[in-house]
Design a protein around this nucleic acid. Structure first.
Length: 266
DNA sequence: TCCTATGTTGTATG
DNA sequence: ACATACAACATAGG
């Protein structure tokens, strides 16, 4: 499920363990989510360490532990974080479990497209500090967007919005939500957007990020019916703005939903 | 049985 | 070197 706001929500689920000491680290050693990382290093560094703080950006989370441990988590397609009561028995897809005296922290991921990273050091790891500037930051400008669209001129705008190097945290549903609000057809080549459309795109990107964080980021509740979101998977779903039928098709390799009545190719 | 899934990456092709 | 398109990854659920 996780895009920008869902990731922020799941990050906070581990807050009950802030300031607490990890008594045991339980792992599924062979799980694909540990590809490229040293499971033994996680175990030895985190056992006895204290969870100090956490942060989320784009679709990434980072957890800082005493002793200089940095645990990075990407939730992939089906990952989740939970805090379970003390004494929780790990289930089939719980690949990383951190036990404290008060609560048990769980990373679960059936499809294992998610990823666990671990590094030690004073400073946070490069993959974290080098994430693209957030859409809600001041350096995310209309001109930045325009320049990126010029370089990806022949790709459908829908596919371009999924590129994390420029639109960190945007995923399939957020991209559709943004294009719907900006009244841009998802199949339109990125290089063919008018200056007015690029301004609308920039504006709606920020709007959707801000409001998704303010709602989903706090409770994981679905956005209101005035959004495209609750209608996108309904059969026979209607556009909340035009009340006309929504359309679904694969664009850029992902199922895309749009409102033909307000998003036109030309 | 077959299809789908809120993601990323490696690889082939132009 | 860069841009583009798409299969592959692994599992569950309709």
């Amino acid at each position: 499920m996780p895009e920008l706001a869902e990731v922020e929500y799941y990050r906070k689920r581990w807050n009950p363990a802030l300031g607490r000491t990890i008594q045991a680290v339980l792992v599924h050693e062979r799980a694909k989510v540990f590809r490229g990382t040293d499971v033994n290093a996680i175990r030895s560094a985190l056992t006895g360490a204290t969870l100090l703080s956490s942060a989320a950006a784009a679709k990434q989370m980072i957890f800082r532990f005493s002793g200089g441990g940095w645990l990075g988590i990407h939730l992939g397609m089906s990952g989740e974080l939970r805090a379970e009561p003390a004494g929780y028995a790990p289930q089939k897809h719980d690949h990383l479990v951190l036990v404290t005296d008060a609560t048990t922290l769980v990373f679960t991921d059936p499809r294992m497209f998610g990823k666990i990273e671990f590094t030690r050091g004073e400073a946070p790891p490069a993959w974290w500090t080098q994430l693209a500037p957030p859409i809600l930051s001041t350096v995310f400008t209309v001109e930045t967007v325009a320049a990126f669209l010029r370089r990806r001129a022949r790709s459908p705008i829908k596919a371009v919005l999924l590129m994390q190097e420029r639109f960190p945290g945007i995923g399939n549903w957020m991209a559709d939500e943004v294009l719907w609000r900006a009244a841009i057809h998802p199949k339109k080549p990125a290089g063919q957007l008018t200056p007015k459309e690029i301004r609308a795109l920039h504006r709606e990107l920020r709007w959707v990020c801000q409001h998704a964080l303010a709602t989903i980021g706090k409770t994981l509740a679905d956005p209101p019916k005035t959004w495209l979101f609750p209608h996108r998977w309904e059969n026979g779903g209607l556009c909340p703005k035009t009340k006309k039928p929504l359309m679904r098709a694969e664009i850029g390799g992902r199922t895309t939903c749009w409102s033909p009545a307000r998003q036109k190719l030309r």
